[in-house]
Nucleic acid binder design. Structure first.
Lengths: 132, 132
DNA sequence: GCTATCAGTATCAAATAGATACCTTCGTGT
DNA sequence: ACACGAAGGTATCTATTTGATACTGATAGC
């Protein structure tokens, strides 16, 4: 009963597509992929561009993306070390849907901020006892 | 200049678009929105459809989505209570980019699972001392 | 031999998610 | 009259994740 004729259902917790869907939506993973969209970037550069992420978490994110075949990790044998991260073709194919989502987010910022204000005011009124 | 002519930059932690981008990518929020794509759904139905989510976390998710103006919460005064959640027009506008992402995930499941196997085997070899 | 660079680990504290039990209201069954 | 069940949550406690901070190891330059 899925909506697009493909196997897989993100609503089924046993379906790998759900795991993958959630990896994409990961707080840092999606940002990293978008940064890598412009070409290979080394670890320390990534840290600066996707600020503020701690090295531990960035490493975890990168390892997970590498494991899933979305990025490659290239170690250059030099001192100090240089490690480049780069999108694989599959990683690049993710760029477009991710960009659409980012554009959606950016274009709806004002509306959402407004909705929050309205909501928060209503909550305040409830707490204070609204003047009804 | 950013890549789409809009203000906002998801890479800037001070930019609200980043917060919003990450709310969309939230583990449960994106699933809830896709479920609501077919029309209003009540709390207990949501729990069943997006299984397995605990009531506390589902409530948190729904409140956050409501606050951001992506869904509405309608309480019907009856016993036992009935509460319907429904997408707002803005919530509906998110459906399409989200669907693209889901389709991407579903169509890349086999490739990603394969990449994982390859990666994990390579890791095992490292640990065991590869037969070289 | 002191210092800096880079790509990370290690360690510990804080925030978040999850499991489980419980609450409220009222109609129905006994 | 009394308990029960339904729906939509909350309260409480624990487990997992995240994050802050300090540190490592190799080497080149001073």
């Amino acid at each position: 009963m899925d909506t697009n004729g493909l196997p897989g259902n993100v609503l089924d917790p046993n379906c790998p597509s759900r795991v993958i869907f959630q990896r994409i939506g990961d707080k840092w993973a999606s940002l990293v992929i978008q940064v890598l969209g412009d070409g290979p970037v080394r670890f320390s550069e990534l840290r600066k561009m996707v600020h503020v992420v701690t090295p531990k978490v960035l490493t975890q994110t990168l390892r997970a993306l590498e494991r899933d075949g979305l990025i490659t990790r290239t170690v250059h044998a030099q001192v100090p070390p240089r490690v480049d991260y780069e999108l694989t073709p599959m990683g690049e194919s993710l760029l477009q849907p991710l960009t659409l989502l980012r554009q959606w987010a950016e274009s709806h910022v004002p509306t959402i901020l407004e909705a929050r204000d309205t909501y928060d005011e209503a909550q305040d009124d409830l707490l204070l006892g609204s003047p009804n």
